[in-house]
Simulated assay, not measured.
Amino acid sequence: MAVPRSSGSQMRILSIDFSIPYLLKDDNYPIGGWAVQLSIWLRALENAGHEAALLTWKGALAHVGSGQQIKLIETYDPEHGVRVAKYFYSYIPKILAAARAYHPDIMIQGVCGVHTAIMAFVAGQLGIPFVHRVVSDMNVDERCKVGLRFYEWLAYSWARHRTAAFLCQNEYQREKLAALFPGTPIHVLHNAVVVAEDAPAPLLRAERRYVAWLGVFRHGKNLPLLFRIAQEFPAVKFRVGGMPERQVDQSTLDAVNGLRHLPNVELVGLVRRADVQQFLSEATMLLSTSDFEGFSNVFLEAFAVGTPVITRRQVDPDSIVLRHSLGASAEDELALSKSVKMFWDMDANEYNALAQRCQIYVKANHSPTAKARELIAALTPLVAKSKHPGQPL
């Protein structure tokens, strides 16, 4: 017997991700920004009175254990199957069966690739809207196709044309998608970060001892630039948190090896979720050397503990660092390098005022509760239209 979809203001939302179980266990596993953000969304949606669940890999429930707020639904084992063919005889049927049993009102997926197409197809089979969350600037321009296998690009391209709405992280993404998909609803929804009500005040400058860098070691994070900056300032202490992704390029490996041999650099390995706050709170600044992002979670995590961000203009999301004076938003590599030295040498009183400003900003603008309301506001007309075809958005 079919279970009716949710009624009234409550919404039933289904998403997919295969790394959140590792995040929930705080495993020694590289976690992307979308998984962190999706976990925040799922908890915030539940707290707001909606139902939300996550499709994930077979065996995840036993791996994670009990007591998790996020509802996990197992699908398939990604370690088994014949390449490409497995999508048709295993992955799609299992995801479709699991989704049908959950009876969602709407499906959301982030990160470009085959799963975008699978979720779009499944949503179509269920007669419900499919929404795609863009998680990087490169997903909306010519760089997207370069990073995907041919069949992945075909799948992703097919899915984007069947998307009921896009959720973007910044205005650049919105503008690019608006040109590609005129008429499709596109919403800018900035990332959220959890800040406890009783969060301690930021540490004073005298208690901060290093420049922090935090992320997955991969091409777009530009570790060669980090290496050059650390070389330039031998009197400045750098602590680098992160680990390589499964397939890492040679220039990144060379940069990591170079960093390992600099006396002013400490490679601390993967910083577990439970330790991120302390790692960032004791830093004078968070340095980002990335070539591209969308809306970096670690920026918000730094602001939450009063740590300013030193970044490049192209990855300052909607220029929030520049507009709100939360650090430095550098035009080029030279300016980025100069900013590191300037903030390291900043007057303590000026620095302490900056640290307070960072924490006040993030509390006022990026709470999970507020972002969940924005998300539901974007999804509500889509669900209403699917239940009442012909209704204008």
Rank of each mutant, 00 (worst) to 15 (best):
S6M: 12
Q10L: 13
M11G: 02
I16H: 10
I16K: 08
D17K: 00
I20G: 10
I20E: 04
Y22L: 09
D27S: 14
Y29K: 06
P30T: 11
I31E: 06
A35P: 08
W41S: 14
N47M: 03
H50D: 11
A60V: 01
V64I: 00
Q68H: 04
T75L: 02
Y76K: 05
P78I: 00
E79S: 08
Y87M: 07
Y87V: 00
Y91N: 06
Y91L: 03
K94S: 10
A97H: 00
A101C: 03
Y102L: 09
Y102P: 07
H103W: 02
D105Y: 01
M107Q: 12
I108L: 12
V111K: 05
C112W: 00
G113L: 04
H115N: 13
V122N: 07
A123G: 14
L126A: 11
F130K: 05
D137Q: 11
N139K: 09
N139T: 09
V140D: 02
R143N: 15
G147E: 10
F150E: 08
F150Y: 11
E152C: 07
W153K: 12
Y156C: 10
R160P: 04
F166H: 06
Q169C: 07
N170F: 13
Y172F: 14
Q173A: 03
E175Q: 13
A179Y: 06
P182V: 08
G183L: 14
A192P: 04
A192E: 02
V195A: 08
E197Q: 11
E197R: 12
E197I: 09
P200W: 11
L204W: 00
A206Y: 01
Y210F: 12
V211T: 08
G215F: 05
G215D: 12
G215T: 07
V216G: 11
F217W: 14
N222V: 06
P224V: 02
A230I: 08
A230N: 14
Q231R: 15
P234R: 14
P234N: 13
A235S: 13
R239I: 00
G242R: 01
M243N: 04
E245N: 10
A255S: 06
V256E: 07
G258A: 05
L262A: 05
N264P: 01
E266N: 05
G269S: 12
L270C: 08
R272T: 14
R273S: 10
D275P: 05
M285V: 15
T289P: 10
S290V: 02
S290A: 15
E293I: 06
E293L: 03
N297W: 09
V298Q: 05
F299L: 03
F303N: 03
R313F: 04
Q314T: 03
D316I: 06
S325K: 13
E331R: 10
E331G: 10
D332H: 12
E333D: 15
A335M: 03
L336Q: 09
M342P: 00
F343I: 11
W344C: 05
M346S: 00
D347A: 13
L354F: 02
L354W: 00
A355W: 02
Q359R: 14
N365Y: 10
H366V: 02
S367I: 11
A377E: 15
A377F: 07
A377P: 09
T380N: 12
V383F: 06
K387G: 01
L393K: 08
